[in-house]
Design a protein around this nucleic acid. Structure first.
Ligand SMILES: [Mn+2]
Ligand SMILES: [Mn+2]
Ligand SMILES: [Zn+2]
Ligand SMILES: [Zn+2]
Lengths: 141, 141
DNA sequence: TCAATAGTTTAGAATGGTTTTAAATTCTGA
DNA sequence: TCAGAATTTAAAACCATTCTAAACTATTGA
């Protein structure tokens, strides 16, 4: 009934990553405030602001290690910047083009049907749906 | 009954772009061999190979102009590289992770249902479905 | 036909998120 | 406590893409 990884230390143990000061700090920032879609430089900024100095290289290393461990999911929508999603359950996204924000679409509200099976010898690893949203229909001219 | 833009010149006229040597060459490479998903540097390579020298800057300019004119669609799947799709009809994609190739999924075979309407004042511009395919299920251990 | 003008192309430099490097530091188990 | 392995880091490298500004070209109306 409790959240899967109540504390950062337990989470790192499960991922078989040494609980260093830096990884603990990043894990807390990532997982202690609900679902997030965060870019590397954004997280780096948060760490510095929280008086937890971490190099940008370590932020990238850690994010990729977390993805490898299944703790994060990497999402690419625009060229030149990746988002890291703390929600690794099956779900899809709204993408707000005006401010480049991602928002979850609950997994059970949306459904993709009749996906053809991929040609010969391929297997489906994942289906990603991105609903691109623009701020508002333009009124008048 | 003929294809929408039988020749490159007509296509550029419809897009209100001057029919320069470079744009004609790129339009031919893009549209005279069926549906394609091509990256900028790839197209640049093809132009050089076909003895139609064009600078890389012009390739980028032209691709973006074609997107603006609705002749191409830009697709972002992996960080660091955009694909340009000559199929601008409503359709979705297989993405083969092993060789980073895109393949069309015919538009009517797949369906996305129950897309919630976006919160307050947003309108849906497009829904993109990407089915990520890995080469094969691993046999044995 | 021929400027004048607006649009286009280009080489090269700049950009910027990400990755790499290699040296210093820290963690772990014995 | 110590050696070996893993980690962190500043700085440089990477690389697709964008920008710059100067040269070139297409268009048009005299
Ligand atoms: Mn990555
Ligand atoms: Mn673009
Ligand atoms: Zn999400
Ligand atoms: Zn396509």
């Amino acid at each position: 009934m409790t959240r899967p990884f109540a504390n950062a230390l337990e989470l790192l143990r499960a991922a078989r990553l040494r609980p260093t000061r830096q990884r603990l700090a990043l894990a807390r920032l990532l997982f202690e405030k609900g679902d997030r879609h965060v870019a590397a430089e954004e997280l780096h900024g948060e760490a510095l602001a929280a008086q937890m100095p971490v190099s940008l290289a370590t932020v990238y290393n850690t994010l990729h290690q977390f993805v490898g461990a299944g703790l994060l999911r990497e999402i690419v929508i625009n060229p030149g910047r990746s988002y890291f999603d703390t929600n690794v359950s099956d779900h899809h996204h709204f993408f707000y083009e005006d401010d480049s924000q991602l928002r979850d679409i609950p997994g059970d509200s949306i459904a993709v049907s009749n996906v053809p099976s991929p040609p010969e010898g391929g297997s489906i690893r994942r289906v990603d749906v991105v609903v691109r949203v623009e701020k508002a229909a333009h009124k008048g001219r």
